[in-house]
Amino acid sequence: MRTSPYRAMAFRRDARRLTVSAPNGELAVWDTSDPERPRRAGRLRLGRGIVAAAWNPAVEDMLATASIDGTGAVWRLRDDRPPQLFVSWAALPDRPRHVGWVAGGSWVYVMTGDGRTSVWDVGSGACVGLADLSGGRPVLAAHYRGDEVVIVTESGWARAWHPKRRPGEWVRLTGKPVSACTWSSTLLVAAGVDGQATCFDADFRSVQALRVARERPRALACSEDGRLVASCGDTWAVAVDRSGTVRWETTLNTMSVRSIDIAGDLIAVCGPQPRPTLLALTTGAELAV
């Protein structure tokens, strides 16, 4: 997600843990098992500060992070124990912007904002691949598709890369700049500055158009089944279903919201402060401030 101040926020799939970066470089871990009373459950720091985080899609207590100095790391965050650094490595010589998992959660990619990427095997510690994926185009978002890393640029292009092969061909998603995008298990949703969005399948084919907001969305999140897309701006959040129907709109007490994520039946939003705000997925009701 873009715009400043950037907040690395990652919601675990079971909605019981949420990580949010702080201005001092720490990554705060929140216990959200009681969404009306979230509490601090730990804090992580590595290198010159953590700027991106992503939960493993297969092992729920493993978290990948990337730090300002280019350090990549994997942590074990068991619910009943203090956070444990599992492994770390010098992933990139420059500041990363994105981190994530590929190959079923056995490889980790670390990427700069202009697409320079390294992929590492967590088990062996070996570098699986290195590539410049965007040719200098600013990367808005990165994700995975099986064993491939997928990027979406701010100018509306997408590209997939298997770390053991050459980067794939560029795909033109839209002729307009992309303000925010998100993924579900089956969809990529890319929204423009006017709040109009397009849904794409795994092969980057357009399958549906939606209006996700009345104005420029700062960030998007999609439910795992792809049935609901939520977006946020400075002081608002809205959710629409796949028919384009607005399910709810809410004004947020949190100011300057920059990040949004969905897990289970909860939505987390975050602004300049590391403390998250939690919303009910079905109603948008604010559960904790």
Results as ranks from 00 to 15, higher is better:
P167K: 04
P35G: 10
P272E: 10
T117I: 04
T250P: 01
T19W: 05
R258A: 05
N24Q: 12
A219R: 04
H98R: 04
R216A: 01
D203N: 13
V29C: 07
L173T: 00
C127E: 15
T198A: 14
T282I: 12
Q196N: 14
R137I: 00
K176A: 02
R258V: 06
R2Y: 02
A52K: 00
T174R: 15
W30G: 03
L140M: 12
A209C: 05
L228W: 02
V110Y: 02
Y144V: 00
T153Q: 03
V149I: 07
P57M: 11
A52E: 02
R258P: 00
M255Y: 07
V189I: 06
R40M: 04
L278K: 06
V212A: 05
I68C: 01
G168F: 09
K164Y: 07
C222Y: 04
R45L: 09
D80F: 14
A41I: 07
A209K: 15
A160P: 01
A190D: 05
M255N: 12
E249I: 15
R13K: 09
A280N: 08
T32D: 03
A280L: 14
P35D: 10
E224D: 11
D241V: 07
A66C: 09
V29I: 13
D234F: 08
E169M: 11
E286A: 14
V246A: 09
A190C: 05
D194R: 15
A90R: 08
A221V: 01
M111F: 09
E169D: 13
A41L: 12
D147F: 11
S179M: 09
R211A: 02
I267D: 01
L281V: 09
I151D: 08
A103I: 01
T32G: 03
H162K: 15
T65W: 09
A239C: 13
